[in-house]
Nucleic acid binder design. Structure first.
Lengths: 249, 249
DNA sequence: CCAAAAGTGTTGCCTTTACACCCATGT
DNA sequence: ACATGGGTGTAAAGGCAACACTTTTGG
């Protein structure tokens, strides 16, 4: 079946596979070149950009559908994934004309969308467009274009929640390569928070979490003094992730 | 139209009004007699208890449907309402038999449910059962019975999120009467957090938020020294609610 | 040998916690 | 008068933020 046929079939019979009116959208964050990136898709029709998304199969959990979508767009399994909000405004898909909604296939109806954010290691991602798009690539978080529907708001909200999560959860395992330097970790935090942090206090805090393991190697090749390499202690990392770091009152 | 007819109509033609496969469930918290309460419904069929819930009309936002449900069960408008999680496991409605799901009406299909928690002033609530239930009343959070589907988990999750929210948002405006004493506010916090707090430090922190106004009156009638009455400064309260209290890093 | 980056330790402040005394009221 | 709960202040501790010096490396 060629792409056109496939697409037509998806429009006509997709509702036999997927639940109507319910979609999943993913804000996939990556970190590269000291910049926070999001993965976006370009629509065949109209050429507008949008978030990677998809639909929920009848016997599939919403979480699993998010995992599946992530896998399809990035090629990666075992992604850190977090549901962050469900978008249920009937006018959220502002581009959809009502006439179209009345006439055409299930896909032109109203959708309530469950939003997930994902953290992935940039270099491991192999961006794959989906059936409705012709391109899939990273965008710098600061230069994201105007997206379809409410997708810009979704990114905004995801980033907001990510920043809050950063307060009491360790982070970085899913965004950085296995071995990394303290300055690299710091750039990551600074980029997400959009705020400069003190080098020494940052290091103290990070080491204080007890989830980092310093290696004997150092990062060579760069100019200036060679920084140590670190690695996350996965067990302790996961434990801290589950428990949260502060605990509140 | 009598209740039976109404119910039958709801089963047969509800899908003309409401979107299929999508529901809303509300964890409605109240505070009374130094105990945290949740509002529950008792099903006509089977007599099991469940959370107040409902469905989303085709042209209605999910948020609005939650507001509508709250209004119907409690009689109250302008309730503090917070979306906290969407439950999308296909097996979450463990009570539903698959046979039934294949045969019967839209309502026996799988539902993905958007969870909201609400904070309401106990004394203002006039509990109203819905079309499928015969009773609606408050339960102490600690003696909630086994509920249908995953509703116990929903309460658990709502409470967890409420506790987190308490860390960086003021709270109490929606749970307490207009005028209240500092000890009353403290009981509320202690009840939600399930933890004892120091009387003096609590007062300092609360007053430090700058959202309370001390009245000249005192609470009379009780034994012992009469405590002052306080009132929330709504403007400052709302501001603090929006901004959050800490700000993180 | 110098600029730029990394590694480390110390100080002070400010927030949080712990705690003690006095006051008011009903029994 | 006394037991109980409420109002207020202070001192110690701990966490966080500000900050300076030394080391390494490439140019």
């Amino acid at each position: 079946m060629d792409a056109d046929k496939q697409l037509q079939d998806f429009f006509l019979r997709g509702d036999q596979i997927y639940m109507p009116h319910l979609s999943v959208d993913c804000v996939i964050f990556g970190f590269h070149d000291n910049h926070l990136k999001v993965l976006l898709l370009k629509w065949k029709k109209g050429g507008q950009w949008c978030l990677p998304g998809g639909f929920v199969k009848y016997a599939e959990s919403v979480d699993d559908s998010a995992v599946r979508i992530l896998k399809e767009r990035t090629g990666i399994d075992n992604i850190f994934l977090q549901q962050f909000h469900t978008f249920g405004d009937p006018k959220r898909e502002k581009g959809k004309s009502l006439k179209v909604a009345e006439k055409k296939s299930w896909i032109h109806k109203r959708f309530v969308s469950v939003g997930y954010y994902a953290l992935v290691e940039y270099s491991k991602v192999n961006p794959q467009p989906d059936i409705m798009s012709i391109e899939c690539r990273w965008w710098d978080i600061n230069t994201v274009p105007t997206l379809i529907y409410d997708h810009n708001k979704m990114i905004e909200k995801a980033l907001q929640i990510l920043r809050l999560d950063l307060n009491d959860h360790p982070l970085g395992y899913n965004l950085l390569p296995e071995k990394f330097t303290m300055p690299e970790l710091q750039r990551l935090y600074e980029t997400i928070l959009d705020e400069e942090l003190d080098r020494r206090n940052f290091q103290k805090r990070m080491l204080g979490l007890g989830i980092l393991e310093r290696l004997k190697e150092r990062k060579t090749g760069g100019a200036h003094k060679a920084p140590y390499l670190y690695r996350f202690d996965k067990k302790k990392y996961d434990k801290a992730m589950k428990q949260g770091l502060s605990g509140g009152w």
